[in-house]
């Protein structure tokens, strides 16, 4: 009898721990960073990344992600040069080379006493550092989907796009202040449109065929970086949580685009 009680007790404790773990894992929380920037804490989880023949299961660790695309005001806060074409404190930064997005992440880390992720000689990302970095492509898609399995985070009906997206039909040919449209289910604004967002990953069309199933971080080599989300200049057909893009304007001022910006992420712990 004593043995049965012990087994039951242990089982109850295990179930309680699992239950607690499950509860905290599924909690999406809004937070404010040390420098006052709004972020959303996302639970780790498993989701279907890509669509059609590219669809595959990916498991991610929890992380924090900016609620809005990085704005020009956020750039000014840490005294970085603002290359944007469409000036406005609340508008997202654009004309930003990938390396300068990485520089911003490092400066923001230093501002908050965190360890910068990027080596500024090699641009390698130290994922163990607690500072800011660009999202991996998988993190970006996970955040954009916000638990949805459809083409868009708002379902499959393209007619709803105008409520959630700054794109060619409603942009008036320029960016809009960050957060001008409705957020996704996890409270993230402008995951589609306004500016396309740099990811940390190097781009490879075939990467999904060989990518690890847990915390994929992109190919080791390549010249282009992943872009996600589409911009103010794109038409309806360009959007979707699984839509992939890339660009080579990594460090070359001559080919910067006013359609490209970014948002930052960092480890959840």
């Amino acid at each position: 009898m004593k043995k049965i009680i012990t087994i039951l007790s242990i089982t109850a404790v295990i179930l309680a721990v699992l239950s607690c773990g499950k509860k905290s894992d599924t909690t999406v929380k809004e937070i404010k960073t040390g420098s006052g920037i709004e972020m959303v804490s996302l639970p780790g989880g498993e989701f279907t990344m890509g669509e059609g023949a590219d669809a595959h299961q990916v498991k991610l660790s929890p992380f924090l992600i900016d609620k809005y695309e990085v704005t020009q005001e956020m750039f000014k806060q840490i005294e970085l040069p603002n290359p944007s074409h469409f000036k406005g404190d609340k508008n997202p930064v654009e004309m930003i080379a990938w390396v300068n997005a990485a520089v911003y992440c490092n400066e923001r880390s230093l501002e908050e006493g965190l360890v910068p992720c990027y080596n500024e000689d090699t641009w390698e990302c130290n994922f163990d550092a607690n500072g800011y970095r660009l999202p991996t492509e998988a993190e970006w898609e996970y955040a954009a989907r916000a638990g949805s399995k459809e083409k868009y985070f708002f379902g499959n009906d393209q007619k709803n796009m105008k409520n959630y997206v700054i794109y060619s039909r409603n942009s008036s040919g320029k960016t809009a202040p960050a957060g001008s449209r409705k957020p996704n289910a996890w409270g993230l604004y402008d995951m589609y449109g306004n500016v396309a967002e740099w990811c940390n990953d190097i781009y490879s069309a075939d990467y999904y065929k060989s990518s690890p199933s847990t915390d994929p971080r992109g190919p080791k080599e390549g010249k282009e970086r992943v872009l996600r989300g589409g911009s103010w200049n794109d038409s309806e057909e360009s959007f979707g949580s699984a839509v992939r893009a890339m660009d080579g304007s990594i460090n070359d001022a001559c080919i910067l685009r006013d359609t490209i910006g970014f948002r930052a992420v960092r480890r959840a712990d």
Partner: peptide
């Protein structure tokens, strides 16, 4: 140079 906080190699800075 535009920023006194940190050096930039960017020509446009």
């Amino acid at each position: 140079s535009e920023s006194t906080r940190r050096f930039s190699l960017e020509s446009w800075s």
